[in-house]
Design a protein around this nucleic acid. Structure first.
Lengths: 238, 238
DNA sequence: GCGCAAAAAATCGTATACAATTTAGCCGCA
DNA sequence: TGCGGCTAAATTGTATACGATTTTTTGCGC
């Protein structure tokens, strides 16, 4: 046991819920890396069979993912990879604009040189993936892009905000999968670098400004027009 | 069906998980209103019997609450009402300081006169409860005090931030139960009123400043010293 | 061939049953 | 009396089973 005596242990040291936890993480990774498309049905039986566990655990994992907003469960119908509406997408990015500057300030205040080094390492890896070709590289790039924001959150030292960011970054990935236009899935890679530069110079105002622009750029690449089921005549009448 | 055609319905219209949802809400209310003390054991069987459902549903509810940070489940040991550490408490309030000004700005930008009216109504109710005596009144007051912040979040129109605030307000209640000093459980009631006033005047900077002060006041009432299990010699040597 | 109703299949919601782990009690022994 | 280890009770982790709801398919009349 690491921490010494304490009245009540608030954080479970052992990995709670080893069963559903693993499934949950596996499915979440698949969603974030866009191997699972929005709207895909995730039947409890199928998930259970896939991971060789009972439906109980599969269900538990799916419900947890539903709470994170990554899957939507409809009563008596099943679970589906979330299909965020344009309005939901706007709310996700509004939340990021609201939260990330604050996280950035906290992170910048307590960042260590070795952590800056770590961030730069991430950027190099990200850049390398951008150069490569192929789906696996693309998926790794998507994850790396999100990891930048997540790492910033972890540096801030606030585990709660970290969890909020986890959710927002994951859901952003869904939104980009649905509404993203430019082929380059990730956002401007150089913008990440600029932010790190500003952090290193301790120019917080500039860093925040860059972050807001960065988020705005990602959002600007989306086509959030209501695609009202195209339906009926317009599709053929033209 | 209310909304017309859409490719995939993202928000389930029917109440999903009627079973565990009800239990979850009931327990959460009990925690937020401090009828359940931090550290209290919540056995799956007991919870199930209490609500006349199977252990399956009880477990599901407890896991959901664990995700919200209101209960902590320890592997093979059970679920307990969360007992936030002083550090956790600081993180909760740091998160609120980070988030609430942004929510306030969003809310102020889109607030309608009738919503202002609604806020004032809440304040009146809150004041009335402050005057009353007795535990039930005290509990209602606790809830009303949180409702002010939650209502602000709902006015902001961002359901994601609303959920984040739900969690933060609930966990704040736990922290206050543990570390609060002044008998008056709720924070300065008048401060809520001042914030509404500033919103009505569209003085956003002032409103944000008041909000930050307000949160600081709540936190200032806490005694967050590490009570390192008092243990060992100090307890007896003196 | 088309539309509609009823039955069949599939899937979810909940309960119960069994296995694994932890906790508490008990007895023997120094 | 105090301590160590063993057994039994309690509690959680996981799987299976059954009932309810939804979806699909089948079959019939037109």
């Amino acid at each position: 046991m690491k921490s010494a005596a304490k009245a009540v242990e608030t954080t479970a040291d052992d990995t709670a819920e080893t069963g559903s936890q693993q499934i949950r993480d596996a499915i979440r990774d698949a969603i974030v890396e866009r191997r699972l498309s929005p709207g895909t049905k995730l039947s409890e039986s199928d998930v259970g069979n896939l991971f060789n566990v009972s439906r109980t655990l599969a269900r538990s994992a799916l419900q947890a993912l539903a709470y994170e907003g990554l899957v939507s469960v409809e009563k008596n119908r099943g679970a589906f990879v979330a299909y965020p509406s344009p309005d939901e997408a706007r709310q996700i990015f509004a939340a990021r604009r609201l939260i990330e500057p604050g996280i950035l300030r906290e992170a910048a205040a307590r960042i260590t040189p070795s952590q800056i080094q770590h961030l730069r390492q991430l950027l190099i890896e990200e850049g390398r993936l951008m150069g490569e070709r192929g789906q696996t590289a693309r998926r790794a790039e998507i994850k790396a892009s999100g990891d930048f924001h997540l790492t910033l959150a972890s540096i801030s030292g606030n585990t709660i905000m970290q969890r909020f960011m986890d959710e927002l970054v994951a859901r952003s990935s869904l939104v980009i999968a649905l509404y993203g236009q430019s082929t380059v899935s990730s956002c401007g890679h150089s913008e990440h670098g600029d932010i790190v530069d500003a952090i290193e110079r301790k120019d917080l105002d500039k860093a925040c400004q860059l972050m807001l622009h960065h988020i705005a750029h990602i959002e600007a690449d989306l086509d959030l027009r209501e695609q009202k089921s195209v339906g009926l005549k317009e599709a053929f009448d033209l």
